[in-house]
Amino acid sequence: MKTIIITIMAFIFGIDDVSFKLFRRPLLIAPLIGWVLGNVQAGLVIGATLEIMWMGIGNVGAYMAPDLITGTIISTSLAIMSSTPHTSLSTMVATAVTLAVPTSILAQQLLVLIETVNCSLNGWAKHLADNGDVKGTVWLIYPPAILTGLARAVPTLIALEFGAGAIQQVIKSLPKFVIDGLSTSGSIIPAVGIALLMMSMIKKFELWMFLILGFILAAYLKLEVLPITLIAIVFAFLYEAATRKNMQPIAQASETVIKVDGEEEDTEGDYDL
């Protein structure tokens, strides 16, 4: 019964991920899974771990990121379902982290497949446009929406139906250092997401300074992310104003050239000083 509920959730969250995007992060999904499975605490901690692990991972441009939705649902469910009353929370987190990586990457391949299949929508849309059929366009989203939902629901159903027992055996037989190592890796892996963010944000060398500033405020002064954001807004204004001034002389120079023909040359000249 719980498997069916989670499969339906996977279907809904799968469609939400490509439409309203209300629940598309691990921390928003995992506690709900935990709630269905009767272990909200595990859901919260697993969700927080995965949220941080996948920080910075998301689709940028045409790049398709690992499928966090399927990955979070399967890994959280299996980690909780394969636990016994004696299983510690850290073992559950380690299980979830270990499962989240391969499931997200495998599920990503399904999304790539759907994007390819969706190419056929262009023909349908063209047909509608040729006929000026505005009412008909409403249907364009239904087949791909169901497809996307199934791409999340079917792997979830299979994994939950056949995975829990096997996972339990594997976790039992693994030596302690493997479990510990895997759960430690959960707090090192965010380096990948953060590095990906850095790649798309550091466009100029001087921007490294802001990264260092943020790091110093957190590492030495132990400030939380929110106060650092507020400080960052101040620096952002200053930096933007400073770099904009560099461009102004050019703008003013060209303005002055135009103004030479007019009469207001003098007042502009004074303003320059």
């Binding site: 965010p190 963010l197 944000m201 943020g214 957190a218 952002a236 930096y239």
Partner: peptide, 25 residues
């Protein structure tokens, strides 16, 4: 352009802070 520049600076400072708070080695 101007808002993008500002957002970029804020984002980078947050990322810098995340390095110290999120990654634990």
């Amino acid at each position: 352009q101007r808002i993008s520049t500002m957002a970029n600076v804020v984002g980078l400072m947050v990322v810098g802070a995340l390095i110290a708070t999120v990654i634990k080695v």
